[in-house]
């Protein structure tokens, strides 16, 4: 398969952004974005797991017999999730508490299992690494944007820095309903940008 490394890398960040376009990994996206910092940390933890699993599985892809592919994949993914868990617990204990059960739940994030099955099991190590990086960064990007929006609308802060006084914020954006609503509008904005682009192309053809 001939493909360009840059394309594989950028694919995950924009054209096939896991959250905003493919709608993968919704649970952590909604749950950990009450502040920009937690959203970004979740994104980076997922990036690490995705990258490492992609690399290891693309190395081992020919050694794993057909019948146990799922078992083997889940085993490798959960190993890296546990590694991420322990590292965050040791070096960033506050974040370990904030992310709570969503840290171990990275295991069942369909983004990771999806990429491993669709991409890493069929491509070389180099491209799988790039795909893991791109997709992970795309995920991190989406979570950071969502977290920043929610934190800003809810408490008037961005990454903990006050932008406008807290009492102008609508706290509902930090709470559960705000997660759903903000993500809904964010996806709608991305959709409308996509629609405009396809319309432009159609106009040019005319």
């Amino acid at each position: 398969m001939k493909q360009s490394g840059v394309k594989v890398f950028l694919n995950g960040i924009f054209k096939e952004n896991p959250v905003l376009v493919l709608f993968l990994g919704m649970c952590p996206t909604l749950a950990t974005t009450s502040t920009a910092l937690t959203g970004m940390s979740m994104g980076l933890a997922t990036l690490f797991v995705l990258f490492a699993s992609n690399v290891v599985i693309s190395i081992l892809k020919n050694l794993i017999p057909e019948r146990i592919t799922m078992t083997a994949y889940v085993m490798i993914i959960s190993t890296f999730v546990t590694v991420a868990e322990m590292l965050i617990h040791a070096y960033y204990p506050a974040m370990y508490v904030s992310l709570g059960i969503f840290l171990p739940l990275i295991v069942v994030n369909c983004l990771i299992l999806g990429r491993v099955q669709v991409f890493a099991s069929k491509n070389s190590v180099f491209y799988s690494a790039l795909d893991g990086l791109g997709m992970g960064l795309g995920f991190t990007f989406a979570l950071t944007v969502l977290g920043t929006l929610r934190e800003l609308l809810g408490t008037g802060k961005a990454f903990g820095n006050t932008v406008f006084p807290e009492h102008y914020g609508a706290l509902i954006f930090v709470l559960a309903p705000g997660a759903f609503i903000t993500l809904g509008y964010l996806i709608a904005v991305v959709n409308s940008a996509k629609l405009r682009k396809t319309e432009d192309i159609e106009d040019n053809i005319d």
Binding site: I181, G184, A188, V189, S192
Partner: peptide, 23 residues
């Protein structure tokens, strides 16, 4: 609905309103 709101976006916003009701 506006085309860009169809599907997932409107479902998410509905879930948000429902979550508000559950609060």
């Amino acid at each position: 609905l506006p085309k860009s709101m169809e599907g997932i976006p409107v479902a998410l916003i509905t879930a948000g309103l429902l979550a508000m009701a559950f609060m």
